[in-house]
Amino acid sequence: MIATGIGSLPIHGAEDEYAEAVRVVLGELPDLPHVPELPGRGATASMTGRTLAVVTGLDADLQPAGWRLTGSSGSPGMDHRRARSQLAQDLDTVEELTQGYEGAFKVQVTGPWTLAATVERPRGDRILADHGARRELAQALADGVREHIRDVRRRLSGVDRLVVQLDEPALPAVLTGKVPTASGFGRHRSVAPPEASETLGWVLGAIADEGAEPWVHSCAPNTPLGLLRGAGAHGLAVDLGVLGAADHDALAEALEAGETVALGVVPSVDPAQAPTDKDVVERVQRWLDMLGLDPEEVGGRLVVTPTCGLAGATSGWARRALALSRSGAAALSGR
């Protein structure tokens, strides 16, 4: 077993805070480090702003209510340009600090449904409200992800396994009609599972076509894991604490099919009582025993992670959570 992080980390106020975040990830997660995200730096570094920096062919700007598309005129707003510049600078830092690195690496982007539930149309209200707009956004995201993967591969030439994680925390709300309208007085219509699967498939397929490994992460309850697998996800990243009975079965099926499961077992915010390495190991072992899975058979496809992103943790706990994930995975593997 190996360990990785979900993506986000807290800021700590240092002048070189992004470089320090990269060093933490490289030091604590040597088997599967990732491009860190620091949403505490502001909207351009949020999961939405970060992903709009990847999307191609669509411009956006930042409004008081959040991000809004402005069309495809080739004239992005100031904040959109800043988001793109910040991502490029962050990747420069990752490239510099990974000189000579060889092995696996992970990057994260927001999935098409969470993006559609978060970003507004040019005329207001969420993209989710417009079938054509959400289709256009997903296809632009798929194209952008292709270019992003190529850029990362150019920068990290020693990486032989590139994982691309789609973050889809809003997907359960999208499917059940629980995303609020701009006014807050109504809810957007639910999206049918076939459309949800098809749209996810465009982005997951683009990742696979580029030779990368497509994962989907959601730490929200009631995430449809079977739908994600059917759409083309080869890895599922979840919070063990929010899973229902059917979810456990879906994860077992994924492991038995040779796919990856990233199991969130380490608290993502500072706990009242910190778990020990033994606690982490026992929690994973109990889960495997419950499902009747042999650790030796599935261990190579099981990844230990924090339960979600670490942006809400203190800097000290964020580092400790990554260290616990790594040491827990090592103990489970007998290393």
Rank of each mutant, 00 (worst) to 15 (best):
G316V: 00
A170M: 13
L243N: 06
R153Q: 13
D160A: 00
T199R: 13
R41Y: 02
G74T: 04
D279R: 05
G49R: 05
V94Q: 02
V109S: 03
S190D: 11
L227N: 10
M47F: 13
G49S: 12
E147S: 02
L128F: 06
L322K: 02
E195V: 06
R135V: 09
A212T: 08
T305R: 03
D270A: 02
L137K: 12
L243S: 08
V304M: 10
K278C: 00
D167Q: 08
R301W: 14
A331E: 15
A133M: 11
Y18E: 09
E256D: 08
R146P: 06
G111D: 07
E198A: 15
R319F: 00
F185N: 05
G144H: 07
G235T: 03
A19C: 10
S73Y: 07
A313S: 15
L263E: 03
D125C: 01
K106I: 01
G211I: 01
S72K: 03
R187H: 13
E37W: 01
K106G: 06
P221N: 09
V216F: 04
V24I: 13
V203D: 08
E195G: 01
F105T: 03
D209P: 00
R123P: 00
A133H: 08
A45H: 15
T44W: 10
V303G: 06
R84S: 15
R135D: 14
V119E: 11
R189N: 10
V242L: 03
A129R: 10
G13P: 09
L26Q: 13
R23P: 05
L171E: 12
P306Q: 07
Y18N: 12
G312Y: 09
D125R: 01
D79Q: 13
W317Q: 01
A237V: 14
E28M: 00
S8Y: 11
G334E: 05
G7F: 05
K178L: 15
R301E: 13
E96V: 03
Q63A: 09
L29S: 05
L228Y: 09
E37Q: 14
T176A: 08
G211Q: 02
L302Y: 11
A53T: 09
L128C: 05
V266M: 08
G100M: 08
L91T: 06
A245H: 09
T98W: 11
P221E: 14
D90C: 01
A245Y: 01
G205R: 07
G42R: 04
T181M: 06
A318P: 06
T51S: 14
G264P: 14
E20K: 12
G66S: 12
A14R: 15
G13N: 06
A43N: 04
E198L: 11
L240H: 15
A117P: 10
D79K: 04
H131Y: 04
T93L: 10
L255E: 03
L243T: 04
A133L: 02
A254F: 09
S73N: 13
D31I: 00
L204M: 13
V163C: 04
D247R: 05
T181Q: 10
V265K: 05
H12F: 07
E253N: 14
E15F: 07
G258T: 09
T70E: 11
H131T: 11
K278D: 15
C219T: 00
G334H: 08
L332E: 08
A272Q: 15
R150S: 13
I207D: 02
T181K: 06
P33D: 07
D279Q: 05
T199W: 03
V109L: 03
G186N: 02
